[in-house]
Design a protein around this nucleic acid. Sequence first.
RNA 1: GUGGUUGUAGCUCAGCUGGUUAGAGCGCUGGUUUGUGGCACCAGAGGUCGCCGGUUCGAACCCGGUCUCCCACCCCA
Length: 456
Amino acid sequence: MSIQKPSLPKGTRDFGPLQMARRNFILDTIKDTFKLFGFQQLETPSMENLSTLTGKYGDEGDQLLFKILNSGNYLKDVEATDLEKGTAHVLPKVSEKGLRYDLTVPFARYVVMNRNEITFPFKRFQIQPVWRADRPQKGRYREFYQCDADVVGTDSLLCEVEILLMIKRVFAQLGISDYSVKVNNRKILTGLSEVIGEQGREGELCVAIDKLDKIGWEKVQEELAQRNFSADAVKKLEPIIGVNGSNEEKLAFLKSFLSTSEVGLQGVQELEEVTRLLTIYGESQEHLDVDVVLARGLSYYTGAIFEVKVNNVSIGSVSGGGRYDNLTGVFGLDGVSGVGFSFGVDRIYDVMDELGLFPQENLDQTKVLICHFDQAGFEYGLKVLQLLREAGIRSELFPDVTKFKKQLTYADKKNVPYVLVLGDDELVNQTATIKHMASGKQETVALGALIEQILE
RNA sequence: GUGGUUGUAGCUCAGCUGGUUAGAGCGCUGGUUUGUGGCACCAGAGGUCGCCGGUUCGAACCCGGUCUCCCACCCCA
């Protein structure tokens, strides 16, 4: 049998101890924040029935779903004629489950299935991996974590405000300072399409306009023309493209620009209300950037939309979300509106790495390593180990009776700050020698004083 | 799904127009130092040059295929 080189599936990663410490730092910050704002945790299975997942993300999305082959003889229902009809016809016969593509759809499914137990408004957060069969590239993986927080069952704009507050808190705690939270409202985009005389085509308008900062106004014009937007409409859109100034100025401009669109004005008003509530709460508008051309692809958004971009890094958006009117409609429960957003931990990690924001020292390292010279010292060490752990000190005993040098090298490599040296003298006198690795200084203390000495 | 790119030691990479036994740095193991790490010096282990086929007296190098990695597009976190 030949030995095969192990490898990982495309777009997946291992997380080593250092990466895990860092990821947990991010994850814990996010989790703490969600809890502080009254969100409760939910987990759903990695796999869902394919019928739950398909048709929720558009044709492209269905392509990107990982499907799970049925167990056993998965070909038993497939006829030769099915194969001729193509993959779309065979798929439901060989696969009835798929891996979760995002956390929103499973959440919607959960809400519908538990509608009688849930009291609304329902605030939940969910931190789990999702899978997409997309081609990986920078900042893009086939398995990655999402950290979603959603509130369903209320139209209050307080939810939007709280999303902004949570984003600000998380980024402040992570030490990311140069970022902007772009905000817009789908109603404004609807209004725009009305005002330029292309009513009802905001979806297409969004797709094109969303690329503005990437490909520039010239190319966006081309794309709009390609999508059969009239030259007149494109021309009418022009003033919007160059709009800048403070958020108030932008909103004032929008008010006049959208004066003939009732929906558009409503969108503006909602944004104004959000900023007003934010001010009452006592929070500044720092990092907040009303962005008229922010569109976001997801079609189910109907109100506010958010996107967070960290400046001066090569990574795309690290967080985003918005309000939707009818989350659960496809599962037969109408009238559940909500608003939600998601942190992309993997991208936040990449951003922090690129900016060098991770704390230098490993946060959950062993504090004390017990070293010894022989079996007697090892056994004495075992007793001392118990004392240390009883006191809640992260500690370990070197497991082999071996050269002292090897033990110290181990401590050094693992960045353990203290080493206990246990030899004959220490054993006879019931003492321990504490060596401080950084300075090299050491001191012998009685066992009774050991804990106190290390904790100080 | 489309286009491009990469593959040589555990890691980062050299390797000339095809020419004997494929190299370096870092890391690893051992030693200088049998109760003391980092630094230094010395020694050592470690490679089917992604895989398969072809051209050639001869291939890490040229050609074809395949896999893989990464990057861009589409879309997205």
